[in-house]
């Protein structure tokens, strides 16, 4: 892997290139010129304090939020400035797993996973049934087809969300805090599923997470955002051995250091 924060080209064309992306809301700049790239088939974890811009960056990658400036290239196609219809074509190659799963309340698990297949791909019902069964098995939630989201545990809901994203057979998967609020065993299960998804399906994954242990376990590369800027970028070992005091404070979970922690 030759992915670096500064080298956005790489040998093989990267799956995702983020070039000087800024995002501003009234009174605050959330992303302050983030530049990075991710190679095909790699897992990049983005970590950082709450409010540092991780989820905003992920939403920009998914085309859900339009950056104020900068460019994002997905599989060679610049997406900033595209119309919604053109963005939808790009989104068909991407899947997104949301922090709280964001399953459609009024639909069963089966209907949730089949949703994109019915609406976008318009496949025959038999084929849809086969794909849904396969993806639910891959996400280890077989047997939940007739349940409604309200009947699922947090971990199951997230895995159904993963199955829904996988059903569209994306080449890029974006995960927004897939392990937050889950017990350590379920965290490991989800981590393994993310790695299995990369190994079996070969998708490129961007994982936003606070969970340092989880990040180090599954990632090929790690980016750390701090106050809207890319503070560190490298392999797991490079980040683990970083001498940057901000990075060290975050991965060691210390309350003292350059990161100001609101204690009250």
């Amino acid at each position: 892997m030759s992915t670096t924060a500064s080298d956005v080209q790489g040998g093989d064309r990267p799956a995702i290139v983020v070039d000087d992306v800024r995002y501003r809301v009234p009174g605050k700049e959330i992303l302050k010129g983030v530049t990075l790239s991710v190679e095909k088939g790699a897992i990049l974890s983005v970590m950082g304090m709450s409010g540092c811009g991780k989820t905003t960056l992920l939403h920009c990658l998914g085309g859900l939020t339009t950056p104020t400036s900068g460019q994002i290239t997905i599989c060679g196609k610049p997406i900033v400035g595209l119309r919604e219809r053109e963005l939808n074509e790009v989104r068909e190659s991407m899947g997104m797993v949301f922090q709280y799963a964001a399953l459609f309340d009024s639909l069963t698990v089966f209907e949730n996973v089949a949703f994109g297949l019915r609406r976008r791909k318009r496949l025959p019902e038999k084929e849809i049934r086969r794909i849904v069964t396969e993806k639910l098995a891959l996400a280890a939630v077989s047997g939940t087809e007739n349940m409604y989201p309200a009947e699922l545990s947090g971990g199951m809901a997230k895995r159904v969300g993963l199955a829904r994203a996988l059903a569209m057979e994306p080449t890029i998967l974006l995960y927004d805090e897939p392990t937050s609020g889950l017990d350590p065993i379920v965290v490991s299960v989800i981590d393994e599923q993310i790695m299995r998804t990369r190994d079996q399906v070969g998708v490129t994954s961007i994982v936003v997470s606070h969970n340092v242990q989880s990040v180090f376990r599954m990632s090929d590369h790690v980016a750390m955002l701090h106050e809207g800027q890319l503070r560190a970028f490298g392999t797991v070992d490079e980040i683990r051995n970083s001498t940057d005091p901000t990075v060290r404070q975050f991965i060691e979970g210390r309350t003292t250091g350059p990161i100001e922690v609101a204690t009250r």
Partner: peptide, 18 residues
Amino acid sequence: GTMKVTEQIDALRSLAVS
């Protein structure tokens, strides 16, 4: 509104459904 605040609208868009 509930779909909006629970990210279901974002989920629709991420599935390329308007």
